[in-house]
């Protein structure tokens, strides 16, 4: 039984950063912007929260700093992609480069190390670490894990039950109609990108001050891309994204479980590939099951074809 408790624990641990970032990215995607820079934003968030936590002595201050920095980066991304009309994919990959290189540079400048930066202040865990019993499910999980359902409900309310959410969807699907109806398309896109940035910052913070309590070079290792995929796999719908994030969380946990228990005698590296393989399979499933969902270009062409 204890294995099962530990497994559920690591599912929750794996899901949290993915879900926070994916729920945020939902807005960018619904507004018609392909925010591939999510990976970079999460990395910047992870770094900024450690930096803030060390500077101000509180993990919450760290998260606030992370949100501020990531929102600023999102504004820059908006400037480049929406105003200067850069290609969103290339600019997104560039944002990842800025994240990897920038955090590594700052890590060197501020902390004078290229190794791990350890956080002294971390996000509190309501349930202390226990190795056995049902309490092991919640052991050592940061408060951000518990806030996840609230975030999901809030995102659902904003995306599906508010005027703003409707405007975001209109902007993404029919920008010309939205414009004709008086929606300020660019402003809506800016707000959507800022929400994405803020939530990616929280997802990144969960990785650093939340669970690992340290920052190391390129520590996201593709979590941002996985979160991005969760938006595609979740059909750009809030609850779809929640389910997709859980699927990827299970995949991550399976990888960890396999490492610990040496399943099938497979080498470690093959088990570590699990989340990436599952991501591909998920997109395959999505493409087969819902051929017109999640393909960012489809919407744009639909508009053209009318």
């Amino acid at each position: 039984m204890n294995e099962i408790y530990t497994f559920i624990n690591s599912v929750l641990l794996g899901t949290t950063p993915i879900m926070w970032a994916a729920l945020g990215c939902l807005f960018a995607h619904r507004a018609g912007i392909y925010q591939l820079g999510l990976e970079g934003l999460m990395l910047i968030g992870a770094f900024a929260s450690i930096g803030g936590a060390l500077a101000f002595g509180s993990a919450w201050a760290g998260i606030a700093l992370a949100i501020a920095v990531c929102v600023l980066m999102s504004v820059l991304f908006w400037l480049v992609v929406v105003i200067l009309k850069a290609n969103a994919i290339i600019a997104g990959l560039g944002l990842v480069g800025v994240g990897v290189g920038g955090t590594s540079f700052l890590q060197n400048v501020i902390f004078h190390t290229s190794g791990a930066v350890v956080a002294k202040a971390t996000i509190p865990s309501p349930v202390p670490g226990t190795a056995t019993g049902p309490a092991a499910i919640l052991a050592s999980l940061s408060l951000l894990v518990y806030l996840m359902p609230i975030a999901a409900i809030a995102v659902w309310l904003i995306a599906r039950r508010s005027t703003f959410g409707l405007r975001v969807a209109a902007t993404g699907q029919y920008p010309f109609a939205a414009n004709a109806a008086g929606v300020k398309v660019r402003v809506v896109q800016l707000l959507a990108l800022c929400i994405t940035g803020a939530m990616a910052a929280i997802g990144g913070s969960e990785l650093s001050v939340g669970s690992l309590h340290a920052f190391s070079y390129d520590m996201t290792a593709g979590v941002g891309y996985v979160a991005f995929t969760a938006v595609l796999f979740g059909k750009e719908a809030p609850w779809g994204v929640v389910v997709a994030s859980l699927v990827f969380g299970v995949a991550t946990a399976l990888g960890i479980f396999g490492e610990i228990h040496a399943v099938f005698g497979l080498p470690l590296e093959f088990l570590q590939m699990t989340p990436y393989v599952v991501t591909i399979l998920a997109l395959w499933f999505a493409g087969w099951r819902w051929p017109h969902a999640g393909n960012a270009s489809a919407g744009a062409f639909a508009e053209l074809q009318e």
């Binding site: 009309k85 560039g94 590594s104």
Partner: peptide, 22 residues
Amino acid sequence: GLPSTSLVFMTGLISMLVTARL
């Protein structure tokens, strides 16, 4: 003493700008 990854930062910046209409 500058880390070699610093130039990734520059690479990223160029990527962000290279397709922009400046």
